[in-house]
């Protein structure tokens, strides 16, 4: 009986492994191989679709260049996100403490939200010049709204019995905020962070299109102008890699911090 059970568990683990890793990874490999072969046999020129092997070659040939440009984009994305998140959290807390502030902040932030920030990027470049400031500003603007809305929801969506308890011991508004609301807001906050990672990368890349003079966005623009699709794809590959790493680390941090939610 026991041996039977062991084999069953073993097969379950194998099954899990196959479903979670082998199949997605296998599909990915197949796509890449088909891509490589079709480029090779159909003799597609590199300036239209480069072959995966050439892209990887290009990436490792100049790895330090891509690392430097990638870190600039990453820096812009993370710092801009941090800025946007900080301001959003600040306002979310303020709105919960003083309802009137919400009446002022929400209409403005919805207006900002519906305006495609990317569309005003060229304008911002004229006002504030080239460099790191405009990308930072754009990323902050793009990430501000999702974090504001989710954090505000989380701060308000508090267990009713817990609120009753805090009321019954005469806790002040600030104490309720400190001991109860901020922690309750963590799960929705983290889901907004996961929404914002791709947004921050998009914001950073697009902002760098408009002549920041550095970063992967700039690399993509220059290689596009030179019909150097291999470099372009290598930059895109680095961006996807960064996005994946960021998402995985956020999920990891989330699981560590919100330990009570994932039994």
């Amino acid at each position: 009986m026991k041996k039977n059970l062991d084999t069953k568990i073993f097969w379950n683990i194998c099954n899990d492994f196959i479903l979670k890793f082998i199949i997605p990874f296998g599909v990915f490999i197949v796509i890449v191989v088909v891509w490589e072969l079709s480029v090779h046999f159909l003799k597609v020129p590199d300036y239209i679709v480069p072959s995966p092997l050439n892209i990887i070659d290009r990436l490792f040939e100049d790895i330090s260049f891509f690392i430097i440009q990638g870190s600039i984009t990453l820096f812009v994305a993370i710092t801009g996100f941090g800025l946007g998140a900080f301001i959003a959290i600040f306002f979310a807390i303020l709105i919960v403490l003083y309802k009137t502030i919400g009446r002022i902040v929400f209409p403005i932030s919805i207006f900002l939200k519906v305006t495609p920030i990317v569309a005003i990027a060229p304008l911002l470049t004229i006002w504030f010049g080239f460099g790191v400031f405009v990308p930072l500003f754009i990323v902050a603007l793009m990430t501000f709204f999702p974090i504001l809305v989710n954090t505000h929801f989380g701060l308000n969506n508090v267990d009713h019995s817990s609120i009753t308890f805090f009321q019954s011991i005469g806790a002040s508004k600030l104490e309720v905020m400190k001991y109860l609301r901020i922690r309750s807001a963590l799960p929705p906050f983290f889901s907004s962070v996961r929404i914002c990672i791709p947004l921050a990368l998009i914001g950073a890349v697009v902002a760098q299109f408009f002549g920041s003079g550095n970063g992967l966005g700039w690399v993509i623009l220059v290689s596009y102008n030179n019909l150097d699709m291999t470099t372009c794809f290598a930059s895109v590959l680095s961006l996807s890699f960064m996005g994946t790493i960021l998402t995985i680390s956020v999920s990891f941090i989330e699981k560590k911090i919100i330990f009570w939610n994932n039994q």
Binding site: D159, H160, S161, S162, I163, T164, F165, Q167, S168, I169, G170, Y179, L180, R183, F259, W260, N261
Partner: peptide
């Protein structure tokens, strides 16, 4: 209200309302 402020009331509701963290 004053009794709450002086912490003279212990309120237990049907949901425990404990802080999960």
């Amino acid at each position: 209200k004053e009794a709450c402020r002086q912490k003279k009331i212990g309120f237990v509701s049907h949901d425990h309302g404990l802080l999960p963290w």
